[in-house]
């Protein structure tokens, strides 16, 4: 009798234990390691602030797939978090991270680039917003990117000072052109003269975004830099457009389709 009762009790307890086991699944969830929890927190914080969620996923994937250590991922997330907290437009920084990840750049080299870009964005934002100018995130990003690629910030300051009425988009287009022309080897004097001609009228500069490319094409065809610049300035002063400059220089659409030749080309 006693034996049977004990057996029944054992069964009931056993079944109770089984039942609890089956009905409380969270009891056997694996505990998270310290760093995994830290990564999850950092990711959540960064997402909360407004950083692109797919980008955060992609950064986390670097650690999951073994291409980056947990520390590296944390440093990237921290850099994004700081930038996010500073209130600068995020997408140039996000794009830079995407570029770095895509090119397999180690995190230790990506972070300083982000820091520099963030500072550039902050400086630009302050300078642009002073004076009550109508400015968009895109304008800030365009100018900051040009500065981060080597354009002296003084150029930006000069333009802002001398054209207080120019809309943000005009200034941004001008700054971008300045950066690209300088890279192409145009002398500062010519660059400034070009910008002054363009900024004299509102809304012109953004329509000359394709000019650096035309400049390079013309150079490749043997036209010298000063000639291109002076013709461009002339046209700008007369209210001419980029297509007019194409005509003036005698560049046809056929020239545009081919690349430079050599080992690769892009037909457009």
């Amino acid at each position: 009798m006693k034996y049977e009762r004990r057996l029944v009790m054992c069964w009931l307890w056993g079944l109770l234990a089984l039942g609890l086991f089956w009905t409380t699944p969270d009891l056997h969830a694996a505990p998270q390691s310290g760093q995994t929890a830290e990564l999850a927190d950092a990711a959540a914080a960064v997402r909360q602030c407004g950083v692109s969620s797919p980008l955060v996923d992609r950064i986390l994937a670097e650690s999951v797939e073994g291409r980056m250590t947990g520390e590296d991922v944390l440093s990237l997330l921290a850099a994004l978090d700081r930038a996010c907290a500073s209130g600068v437009p995020l997408y140039p920084l996000e794009a830079k991270v995407e570029e770095g990840l895509g090119k397999r750049v180690p995190a230790i080299r990506i972070v300083p680039v982000l820091v520099t870009l963030q500072e550039s964005l902050q400086r630009t934002s302050l300078a642009l917003h002073a004076g009550g100018r109508a400015v968009s995130d895109e304008d800030v990003a365009t100018i900051a990117t040009a500065v981060s690629q080597g354009l002296p910030f003084d150029t930006v300051v000069r333009l802002l000072r001398e054209y207080p009425a120019a809309p943000g988009a005009d200034v941004a287009a001008a700054v971008k052109l300045a950066g690209q022309l300088r890279k192409a080897g145009v002398a500062d004097g010519d660059v400034n003269a070009f910008l002054d001609a363009g900024l004299a009228t509102e809304g012109v500069m953004p329509r000359w975004g394709g000019f650096p490319r035309l400049f390079m094409l013309a150079r490749r065809q043997g036209v010298d830099a000063e000639s291109v610049m002076s013709q461009a300035q002339q046209l700008l002063r007369e209210g001419g457009t980029l297509p007019d400059l194409y005509n003036a220089l005698g560049i046809t659409s056929r020239d545009i389709r081919q690349g430079t030749g050599g080992s690769g080309h892009v037909s457009q």
Binding site: K96, E99, G100, K103, V105, R109, I110, V113, T116, L117, S148, Q149, G150, K183, G210, P212, R213, M216, R220, G259, T260, G261, G262, S263, G264, H265, V266, Q268
Partner: peptide, 22 residues
Amino acid sequence: DPGISLVREDNFGSRNSVLYVG
């Protein structure tokens, strides 16, 4: 892209090719 002359520094120590589409 070796065939493209228009390049831009990428701040990571190398260069990107620049393409205008349109």
